[in-house]
Design a protein around this nucleic acid. Sequence first.
DNA 1: GACAAGTAATACCTTTTGGTATCATATTGG
DNA 2: CCAATATGATACCAAAAGGTATTACTTGTC
Lengths: 108, 108
Amino acid sequence: METINIPTQTFKALGDPTRQQILGLLSDQELTIAQVAGHFDMTRAGVKKHMKILEEGRLITVRPKGRERLNSLNRDGFSAVADWVGYFDQFWDEKLNALKALVEEDLK
Amino acid sequence: METINIPTQTFKALGDPTRQQILGLLSDQELTIAQVAGHFDMTRAGVKKHMKILEEGRLITVRPKGRERLNSLNRDGFSAVADWVGYFDQFWDEKLNALKALVEEDLK
DNA sequence: GACAAGTAATACCTTTTGGTATCATATTGG
DNA sequence: CCAATATGATACCAAAAGGTATTACTTGTC
């Protein structure tokens, strides 16, 4: 049996509107925490907590540049979600096959 | 600009291990709330709440059968997640194109 | 050392999670 | 048909987790 690891932390990270917006911002360009905070009515500390959750969900990565730390999207988390959803594609395939078998049985 | 609606409720529904397990059970067969509760150390009322969240995330549907109500997977939620992830695929494409452009610039 | 970015600690409030209790409804047996 | 039973829906409550603001501390660059 083929198993798949469930990206719980990734889904949790995605289940918040603020974090979704942050991802949207980062899809344009990499940003510091202060720059992200500039787009919201929120303190740097508040943004930082969301960034940590996004990082734990492997949706962003951080790289130092001078005295700043630039945050950018990380493909890992997105791939994990895509894989997980793909796993359930089996289900729909089997369901369609079962339906097809039923129909063919009817035609006999 | 092409927009995409963000399935927040769906991600929220997916961000819980118990609900993920429930989806796994339902990928085998449709089940009543009582049957789902049989797989967990949880009351029917507790399970019911998870089912409601899954339903709001369009991950399951319910159909009545006698005095029972059978729960099964709903493709809508899964499709929404797939679409959303697909939207971010653009990002990786653009990033690769930018990289390619840089490399070609270098070769001049 | 001064400044700006980042991080840590704390407190407050809201949301989520799960339990118990209760009620309505549908089925089944007598 | 009526009583007993099983299912599921809902209301209320307590504990836990999550979100935000405030304040203060650390670190890196100039």
